[in-house]
Amino acid sequence: MPQKLEYLRETASQTAGPFVHIGLAPGAAGFDIYREELGHDIAGPNAQGERIRVEGQVIDGTGSPVKDVLLEVWQANAAGCYAHPEGGGPVEEGFRGWGRVITDFETGEWGFDTVKPGAAMGRGGRMMAPHLNFWIVARGINIGLNTRMYFSDEDAANAADPTINLIEWERRRATLIAARAERDGAPVYRFDIRLQGDDETVFFDI
């Protein structure tokens, strides 16, 4: 017998279920327990860059909004650095770059305020276009879905982005690009995530 390798195996995922809010957003479940719920303030007060809002729905295979979904976002600051020891450089005091958002139980709409991230250095010295990393869990989702949101006003950077270019089907690339609009003079990006259908969002195995 050859020698044994001493690796462990990753714990299996299970669905977050319909009551994920109790653990991760108890206020929405209907009770107040923690001093502070995590993930409400993504950028903090000192972040440089453009303040933006991002909104959308997660839409299931019947075309209906998913009303019990929870999304987490992970992003770089305006200089392209993540708030992490390996994040590429310092970030502003109070910038965490991580957010957690749930939907309105009636409409399935979600939204959050943050700053627009900068381009970040990718593999092999290729710059990555500004993007937000998403992780999506819900009842009926057996393992969290990973995707990225890019910005419609970054055409040149998007065209050179190594991840977008990894997607063989050009028409599917558009599913990752959020459309910019103005509301009361402030930028709002719309990012609808489609779990199935002709315009199924591209999801990544990261």
Binding site: G61, R139, L145, L195, F203
Partner: peptide, 16 residues
């Protein structure tokens, strides 16, 4: 109704 039908795109890890 909540499961993607296309395969996941395999992505090598970056700083993100």
């Amino acid at each position: 109704a909540r499961s993607p039908r296309y395969s996941l795109i395999s992505l090598e890890n970056s700083i993100s």
